[in-house]
Design a protein around this nucleic acid. Structure first.
Lengths: 239, 239
DNA sequence: CGCACTCTTGACGCACATCAACCCAGGTGG
DNA sequence: CCACCTGGGTTGATGTGCGTCAAGAGTGCG
């Protein structure tokens, strides 16, 4: 019943990111049956779209996604950027259909995990059950943070928070703590941050002038992470 | 083991709001053991606070809550308003501690559902398992909507969307489709909507001038729901 | 009755949006 | 290999929606 996959979950180097830890050998064996198949998505392609029936969650193996919701009048809002090891598709569970678009912003590959397999297995494997709960809860908490950002931060603070979050996640995947390649356009960042692309661009330039970062197109180097941190959490003294 | 409660879940008139539907008698009996106890919270009191250990989810029986996250520098952001039948506390699951404050904005009573009972029982009762997933997914989708609102709507659109959402939820609980009492202050609405209280007040006045609503303090009557709808989803023709 | 809190309204300022011109890099085809 | 084109990015000038500051009215609780 286990599909012939190039790499089983139990052997995957992203395991600690998307799977529960501390499983017995028997449980690991079961977990390997979670992933039914893999799917490759070209840059610009959709993993799923608003309105499509929900059947599976997806674990990102390689590549980068954005998710966006679209208002009926066409305005849209990027709700998140997802990278390797992250789970995508949770929005579809409530009504058995997806409520946002997931678009690859670079060539990507995902592990397809049929949701009914997940529910079945999480009745047997407690760690998996807890893991599913944690992933959903984490997403809720992340969105709380975005609401704080959108609701009460200024442009510089938003961008600083965004950059810090990005490098932190990349660092957890073995990349540099100070250097990164922006996978998304200024417009996509702006949409996520509730800003226009010109404002994003200007704010980058301002940070660069102040010696906080170095930007060349999509290559970004953080020179003064403390300065960014101070922007996000203004220093004690004025409130 | 079942606590002596005034009203069992199986007999509760809010059952269809917070519990799964279509249970067998046997399952209903089990569900009745979910609620360990009840807790009353006075207006202004906290159900839980950021940093407190997470043990239970709460189903609101009566009253009204707000949840807010607080940045390290004191800025805070209302992330939602919750009413009877809604579940609160999902943010605590990831790290076994709450990451926001839940404050009663009017005298309230909640059903305390220990999370380990929930996980245990949802291994036996598939409908409960699915229900938990749906509740969390619904919260994620709701927050997507808030992000759209905060990221790309103007003040009037935000307030219109907020009012429509409120009456719709109240209507689902048997209240009027056009008349409501605002349980929260202008400042709390503002925080939720990413606006200052003066802007909220002015926008109310503007709506009233235009004959869309009638406001007297916290009593609000919607005179022209279509006008509000048009604000949220601008009519086809200009985009 | 009086105090504290909430709400309203006005005047003014600013952060960000808008509009517009231009640059740059990469891909394509002759 | 170069000319061209297209999409992404930067930067400046100008506009405006909402924030800020301030004064005062209404409401309800002790």
């Amino acid at each position: 019943m286990a599909a012939a996959l190039s790499v089983a979950c139990s052997k995957c180097n992203l395991r600690e990111l998307c799977m529960p830890v501390g499983l017995s050998d028997e449980e690991l064996g079961k977990i390997d049956e979670l992933v039914a198949t893999r799917r490759k998505i070209k840059r610009g392609g959709a993993l799923f779209r608003n309105g499509e029936p929900f059947k599976s969650l997806f674990a990102i193996r390689t590549g980068f996604f954005k998710t966006c919701v679209t208002a009926e009048d066409g305005r849209d809002q990027v709700t998140g950027f997802q990278m390797a090891g992250e789970i995508i598709g949770l929005d579809g569970i409530v009504n058995d259909q997806h409520t946002c678009d997931a678009i690859a912003i670079e060539d990507a590959e995902v592990c397809v995990m049929p949701f009914d397999r997940i529910t079945e297995l999480s009745r047997e494997v407690n760690a998996l059950q807890h893991h599913v709960h944690r992933i959903m809860s984490r997403e809720i908490v992340r969105e709380h943070g975005v609401m704080l950002l959108l609701g009460s931060m200024r442009a510089e603070e938003r961008l600083a928070a965004f950059l810090l979050n990005l490098v932190q996640r990349l660092h957890a995947r073995g990349f540099s703590r100070s250097e990164l390649v922006l996978r998304m356009t200024r417009e996509e960042m702006g949409s996520y941050l509730g800003l226009k692309l010109e404002t994003v661009s200007r704010t980058f330039s301002k940070f660069a002038d102040e010696g906080i970062i170095e930007v060349r197109h999509r290559h970004l180097r953080i020179l003064d992470a403390d300065a960014l941190n101070r922007l996000v959490n203004p220093p004690p003294g004025r409130e």
